[in-house]
Design a protein around this nucleic acid. Structure first.
Lengths: 141, 141
DNA sequence: TCTTGACTTGGAGTTGACTCCAGATGCTAT
DNA sequence: ATAGCATCTGGAGTCAACTCCAAGTCAAGA
């Protein structure tokens, strides 16, 4: 499969695909006799992996480290596994942070819902009222 | 509270705090007589909100739009709520994507765990074996 | 009063992640 | 064999989000 087909398959530009390879996010793609890249199952796996991990916020550095180890051979399996475990922990942490943010956002939306508050500080832990001039309880925003 | 204290409080550099204000991620911070910024409860709420939302991947554009509406006054509450609802949906989507990635990562780690596979293609839907020269089932990586 | 240190501004520089470009090369069809 | 198209490469350009810098202002202490 040539690069433009792979590009469509993954929704990544050909340039991005070449870029991933260039910076070592995946090993060098096998080539056709003419010199053009030939994406097959192996590279599909890598592209999908990179896309997934990058999309989930895994650092480029961790992935290039992983690729380097992969290219060094089977002896590095343990180190590679450690990288994955490390990154899994970070990913889980990011997810719970995001869940917390989602909860806060829901609270903020709820303020707009009840139309009572809708003060910006609704997200702050302690929120003394701004806009002192208003009659108590009247929505300012 | 001056900018360096606020910087410590939020773990953001003074430059970043000024930058947020400059690009309209939050309204202008109130000033002390001398002209230096004076962060109080209101700005704490904004900084926390911005930090939380940006950290969860909410686009800068959505936040600046929100701030602009906020500054236009109470009449825009409905539009602001819509922005929050919109962004909530996107955030929820990102979270479930990340959960899917986490599952895939767990599968990949499991492969290293059983030490049977550990092939890179373990993440691809269909994964014919690479390294054809090997005896079947032998871990190559 | 002078120095020191934190603050101010506008603007330049940096980094990461692409994205685009020019010029060269290689298949394919006429 | 010549045109047309996709691909290749190295390198330059772009964009967001900071990050740093220079030059100036301000308040407080020696």
């Amino acid at each position: 499969m040539n690069i433009s087909e792979a590009s469509k398959k993954f929704g990544l530009s050909a340039d991005t695909l070449r870029y991933y390879e260039k910076i070592g996010l995946m090993p060098a793609v096998t080539r056709k006799p003419g010199g053009s890249r030939d994406y097959g199952e192996e590279e599909f796996g890598w592209v999908e992996f990179v896309k997934l991990m990058r999309g989930a916020g895994v650092e480029v550095e961790a992935l290039t480290r992983y690729v380097r180890l992969f290219q060094e051979g089977p002896a590095t399996a343990g180190q590679r596994k450690q990288i994955l475990i490390e990154q899994r922990a970070k990913m889980a942490a990011r997810i719970s942070e995001m869940n917390a943010s989602l909860d806060r956002l829901d609270m903020k939306i709820a303020h707009y819902e009840t139309s009572v508050a809708a003060h910006e500080e609704s997200l702050a832990p302690a929120s003394p009222s701004r806009f002192r001039g208003n009659s108590a309880g009247k929505a300012t925003v």
